[in-house]
Design a protein around this nucleic acid. Structure first.
Lengths: 204, 204
DNA sequence: TAGATTGTTAATCGATTAACAATC
DNA sequence: TAGATTGTTAATCGATTAACAATC
């Protein structure tokens, strides 16, 4: 099991989308087709695919269905990953409604909030639970992943609770930098940065 | 004006968040403090800062306020960027409500949808307009940026309209790969990929 | 002064691209 | 057969890290 870089993960996920929608029904696809659609070098695409252990066919390319399944395997889409969403605002709501999560093994168990009007209700079919119960439930169900969609002012405090209870991964949608021990990973979903990178592409 | 890589943009945006929230009130910050909080090498932080044209002070570090302003300048936060959101579902709603966009010059003018129950209403203070009027308005207001939050099946069709009317940047939140001419930039906001990258960090 | 911190160069590391033999 | 496409190696490019003189 070779380590695989974040850039490769990102590209493989895009190949997967492409195979799922754009290439639906086609039996074969060539590395050059994928490369053209995503504006990449075709040898890079072949290298990525080689990492998944898929062999192509000269003159024909790769079997779409086989490639798709191998990417799913390589990235672990079928392994179930349990997640709590903390913050049942509009972003938390959008994420719980994100239909595709299921297909990737991302299983949202509940949302947490401290708004009495939301607690006890359901959003996207999931229960909204009081923030007071967070620590308890993280420990009890042994949750390792949380999605953070609280207001920035609350981000560090919630993080501290979650870390104490054993959370390992924090997917941070708030525009804040979090202090955590080295054993905990924060992934910064830096929404504004994405926009700036997009605009940068005009020059680059 | 040297070109600046996406990785640098991403880090500068994180430094900015850090200065805005975590370091509020502190007059100075050292490169090593930023590096520790974000788990980076301190010389990398100094290089990034040098790109913004900010000079530090030996033994003290950088002036927080000056650094913050220089990052804003460098990344163009104060330049106004007009945007249409296409798709007024829960993700479109979350984005129009994203309070911080204003601070970064991202100005959402309207949402577009084809649901008669939504058209004419307001979401997050912005009008929801019929998709039929999209082409017309893009051309007339000369919109260059769109945010795509429609169902995946509709993504390519909407893209084709938008491109015809002169859109230059498409921030694609749908899990699809889009065919566009070379002059148009698609930025793939690959939400599932982010999660997989986060989990990958446990090994890497 | 001694210690801390910058600014910058050189060394290293990793990722992408070019090239091409193999072969269907 | 000729052309297309893979699989892979070598070359290039770019980004990060190490190191250290300068200096407050």
């Amino acid at each position: 099991m070779t380590a695989i870089s974040n850039k490769v993960i990102n590209r493989l996920t895009l190949y997967h989308c492409l195979l799922k929608y754009t290439c639906k029904g086609k039996p074969f696809i060539a590395s050059s087709e994928i490369a053209d659609l995503l504006d990449l070098d075709d040898s890079l695409v072949r290298k990525d695919i080689a990492l998944c252990g898929v062999l192509g066919h000269k003159k024909q390319g790769y079997v779409v269905d086989e490639l798709k399944k191998s990417i799913e395997q390589k990235l672990g889409f079928s392994e179930r990953k349990e997640v709590f969403i903390i913050g049942a605002g509009s972003l938390g709501t959008a994420l719980v409604n994100y239909a595709d999560f299921k297909d990737y093994g991302i299983d949202i168990l509940a949302l947490f909030d401290n708004d009495p009007n939301k607690i006890g209700k359901e959003i996207g079919g999931k229960r909204v639970v009081s923030l007071e119960k967070l620590s308890n439930l993280i420990s009890r169900i042994n949750i390792k992943n949380i999605i953070l969609t609280v207001p920035p002012q609350a981000a560090q405090e919630v993080t501290d609770y979650a870390v104490q209870c054993g959370v390992r991964f924090i997917w941070n949608f708030t525009p804040t930098v979090l202090r955590v021990p080295k054993t905990v990973t924060v992934y910064y979903e830096n929404i504004v940065s994405s926009f700036m990178q997009m605009q940068n592409a005009s020059i680059a």
